[in-house]
Design a protein around this nucleic acid. Structure first.
Lengths: 109, 109
DNA sequence: GCACTCGACAACGGTATCGTAATCTAGTTA
DNA sequence: TAACTAGATTACGATACCGTTGTCGAGTGC
């Protein structure tokens, strides 16, 4: 395990990466790419977001290294850089679960 | 593994949780609490942030269930709700690592 | 009671970010 | 070459969020 020191600089970078995932639209895009790579128009169709919007979100995700780009003719294919995004989401979801359960427990008292 | 369905609603909640961690100040606060619970003034001293600022960040972290609150006389003690925050940060850091390495590889070509 | 401290809260200015509309570039096809 | 398409880019208005200042309530000690 690469135990990077958590200096303020590193903290800023980590925060930046968290922010990239702090947007429902981007999570939706990432989820749409879970199985295969996709073009921008594919993603526009699947998510219902605007073209410029999707493109901008993809720029950001690519800049942060969450997705890879591959150009072929007119199309640009985007794919997940790695699967760890879903590991992150899983942790978040299980926290959501336990929070909801705790909240219910409080209400029951 | 609690495989929650990733409906748009859930996605919004997950995004909200990511946003809570998308701020260097909050990561700094969480890191300061890694070992023991702390009062607000402790955290102000340790982080160098303003009092009102710290208090507001703590409200948010508490609302999202990342920290617990315990009042004792004049003081309010905050503590980590669980350690999974650091699991999240670890994943992010290792991604940072591999990104940096990939970038270096590109530069070397 | 009075002064003091801790922490929460409201208001405010500055900045960042979202989504959209319009434009531009590059590649394809007729 | 002209028309078309995919996608990137820019400009803009709306909104959200950060950090600070000032204030208030609660608890403590003289």
């Amino acid at each position: 395990m690469a135990k990077t020191k958590l200096t303020p600089d590193v903290l800023a970078l980590v925060a930046q990466r968290f922010r990239a995932l702090a947007e429902p639209a981007r999570l939706q895009i990432l989820q749409s790419m879970r199985r295969h790579e996709m073009t921008v128009t594919d993603l526009v169709g699947q998510t219902g977001l605007g073209q410029a919007n999707v493109s901008k979100h993809l720029q950001l995700l690519h800049a942060q290294g969450f997705v890879t780009r591959r150009k072929d003719g007119l199309f640009t294919y985007y794919a997940l850089a790695d699967q760890s995004v879903f590991a992150l989401c899983d942790i978040m979801c299980s926290q959501l679960d336990s929070n909801a359960r705790a909240r219910r427990r409080v209400l029951a008292s």
